[in-house]
């Protein structure tokens, strides 16, 4: 997914010299093509994310559209106040890319798990938060970042995008995935969980929708939820304040009396190794565990 996103940037930047890509000395094997074709539009900022974000804000104040690039929490939490004060407050065109969202960096450990970023960043005024689930949504998100004004945060999973699997999506809507879209159960997900959602749906029939833009929430949310009997959210993110919380807030604020089951990571640090799937299981978010949770909660409703 990161390759697809960066390639979108590269193609746009070739035509538009006001597009700049700043990296915090990361992007091995990912940024090479961008750097080789337009080296003057990529700046390696060194391992200094606070300055990367401040410089990005300065460049954006002078008319550039700037993308900052790093992995995990480095482009977000490490420089959170620069994002808040220097990017969000003046609403400049700075777009913050985080690679390996959720547990994508697996055995690299807690430092590389971006599992609280959505809850923290969605609370910042003026900042759009994107989390595409597949190639189609990556392209839609990249186009939004290249055309819309104002800052954004983009969390990109490490999973490989299937560039052949193009479906019709919009960046500001819930996008249906699969044929079962009329099911009374609806599962909303984002980021790296689409395959997991499909596996759950094989055991518990439900309509799957992906949500590439978490903030603001999708414009068609009300229509998507109409006539449903149960909402399930699934994300590789801390349950406290994440996407599931955002949906819960929406249901409360709009007085929509639908039961909600939030599937996500508990509020703990994961201390053992494993792939993102293995870590999900350790955290109680494996497919079988999700199915069991859903069945238990629905039974006891």
């Amino acid at each position: 997914m990161r390759d697809s996103f960066v390639e979108c940037l590269r193609q746009a930047a070739i035509k538009d010299p006001s597009i700049l890509l700043l990296t915090g000395d990361l992007g091995f094997g990912v940024l090479n093509r961008f750097i080789e074709s337009i080296p003057q539009q990529c700046i390696n900022m060194g391992i200094a994310e606070q300055n990367m974000t401040g410089v990005a804000a300065g460049l954006a104040l002078e008319g550039y559209r700037v993308f900052t690039y790093s992995i995990g929490n480095f482009s977000s939490l490490r420089c959170l106040e620069q994002i808040r004060n220097d990017v969000c407050y003046p609403k400049v065109n700075v777009h913050i890319i985080s690679i390996g969202s959720g547990l994508g960096y697996g055995s690299l450990g807690m430092s590389h798990h971006a599992t609280e970023d959505v809850s923290i960043l969605r609370s910042l005024p003026n900042l759009a938060v994107y989390s595409p689930s597949d190639y189609a949504e990556v392209i839609a998100v990249a186009q939004a970042c290249l055309t819309e004004s104002g800052p954004s945060y983009i969390r990109l999973p490490r999973i490989k995008a299937d560039t052949q699997a193009l479906r019709s999506v919009k960046v500001d809507t819930c996008n249906g995935f699969g044929a079962d879209q009329q099911q009374p159960l609806v599962l909303l997900t984002h980021g790296s969980c689409l395959a997991q959602a499909q596996a759950i749906a094989e055991q518990i029939p439900c309509a799957i929708y992906t949500v590439p833009r978490i903030k603001p929430l999708p414009t068609n949310l009300e229509a998507i939820l109409k006539g449903r009997t149960q909402v399930i959210t699934l994300e590789q993110h801390n349950l406290d304040g994440g996407f599931g919380s955002a949906i819960g807030e929406w249901l409360l604020d709009h007085r929509v009396a639908l039961p909600l089951i939030r599937l996500g990571l508990p509020n703990i640090f994961l201390t053992q190794g494993g792939t993102d799937q293995e870590l999900s299981q350790q955290a109680g978010l494996g497919v079988a565990q999700c199915v069991q949770t859903i069945q238990q909660r629905m039974t006891h409703a």
Binding site: N51, G58, N85, D86
Partner: peptide
């Protein structure tokens, strides 16, 4: 006023970005 400040340690980074923009242009 070019930049809203208050939290210390921010403006030199932003100024550096502005200066870099001036040089590039």
């Amino acid at each position: 006023i070019e930049l809203s400040t208050g939290s210390l340690g921010h403006a030199l980074g932003v100024a550096t970005g502005i200066a870099l923009a001036g040089k590039r242009k």
